[in-house]
Simulated scan of single mutants.
Amino acid sequence: MKKVLLLLANGYEVLEASVFIDVIGWNYIDGDKTTKLYTCGVTKEVNTTFDQKTTVDYTIDEVDFEDYDALAIPGGFAEYDFYSDGYSEKFLNVIREFDKRRKIIASICVAALTIGRSGVLRGRNATTYNRKERIRQRELAEYGVKVMDQPIVIDDNIITSYNPSTAFDVAFTLLELLTSKENTDDVKRLMGFIE
């Protein structure tokens, strides 16, 4: 069983988290049945963007990184305090540990900023939120990242994307890396994304 750890910061965007839950879940039920997702946060209860509450499966302190094959990180809103958790040493250390083990790290939108801040993207290609005068892309570049203005960027084991519209594509890319293109296409068909 391939295990995905969904790392949630306070103020995470529900849409961006839900695509990982759905795609990995559909594969578990109707795909090749080889993937399962678990949620994790700095604290046991995590607020979403727009202030809904989520109880995660584990806190960071309870997780053994060796048990997981991939890390998924949704972005979030500064207005809902995303960067307090996202830039905390506990959160950044999870990213460092997954990268050190060369495990897949899949992120959507501004979650790339947490990866950039962790230091693992220095000198590598990535992207992040590309609207509002590209402020977030300039921030990502400050971490020594080669910012690409394209929807999804894959650099070795790290997937980044530039806004919520890319969310399903990132989740399907993660599934393909964990399983196969054929299996991912089967899941896409079942979910109605392709005929």
Rank of each mutant, 00 (worst) to 15 (best):
D61I: 05
A126C: 04
I73L: 13
E89S: 10
R136E: 11
V94M: 10
E97S: 07
T114C: 14
R134H: 11
E89C: 07
I108C: 05
L121H: 10
V120D: 04
P74T: 00
D99R: 03
R101P: 04
S84F: 13
T127I: 06
G75L: 04
R96F: 08
D85W: 00
K90N: 12
F82C: 11
K146E: 10
R131I: 01
V145L: 04
P151K: 12
E79G: 09
Y80Q: 03
Y80I: 00
Q150D: 06
D64H: 08
D99C: 05
R122N: 13
A141D: 07
L92A: 05
K100R: 14
R102Q: 12
Y83D: 15
D99L: 00
N125H: 13
R96E: 04
Y143W: 11
S88V: 04
G116E: 08
K90D: 13
K90S: 12
Q137D: 02
G123S: 01
R136P: 01
K100T: 03
S118K: 08
G144N: 10
F98N: 00
G116M: 08
Y83S: 14
R117K: 15
L113K: 09
D149K: 12
E97L: 12
N93T: 14
E133D: 15
G144S: 10
A106V: 04
E66C: 05
R138F: 13
L113R: 03
A106G: 01
R136M: 14
G119E: 10
A70T: 05
P74V: 02
N130M: 06
I135F: 15
I60K: 02
K103W: 07
K103M: 05
G144K: 08
Q137V: 01
V145T: 13
E133V: 10
R138E: 14
T128R: 14
I105A: 07
E66I: 06
K146A: 07
G116K: 13
G116Y: 11
D67E: 15
A72Q: 10
D61S: 15
Y87A: 07
I135H: 11
T127L: 09
E142I: 01
Y83C: 11
P74N: 03
L140F: 08
V94D: 06
C109Y: 11
R134D: 06
M148R: 14
G119D: 11
Q137S: 02
K90M: 06
V147D: 09
R134C: 00
S84C: 03
E89N: 12
R138A: 09
R124T: 02
A78L: 12
L71D: 00
R117E: 12
T114S: 13
T128Y: 15
T128A: 10
N125F: 11
T128L: 12
E139A: 06
D99A: 03
R136L: 13
F82I: 00
I105N: 05
S107W: 07
D85G: 05
F82Y: 15
E66L: 09
E62S: 11
I95S: 13
E62Y: 11
R117D: 04
V110L: 14
K132M: 13
D64V: 03
I95Q: 14
D61V: 08
D85L: 04
V147K: 06
E66Q: 14
A141M: 05
T128Q: 13
R96Y: 09
F82R: 07
I152M: 01
F65R: 07
E66G: 12
S107H: 09
D61R: 14
I152Q: 01
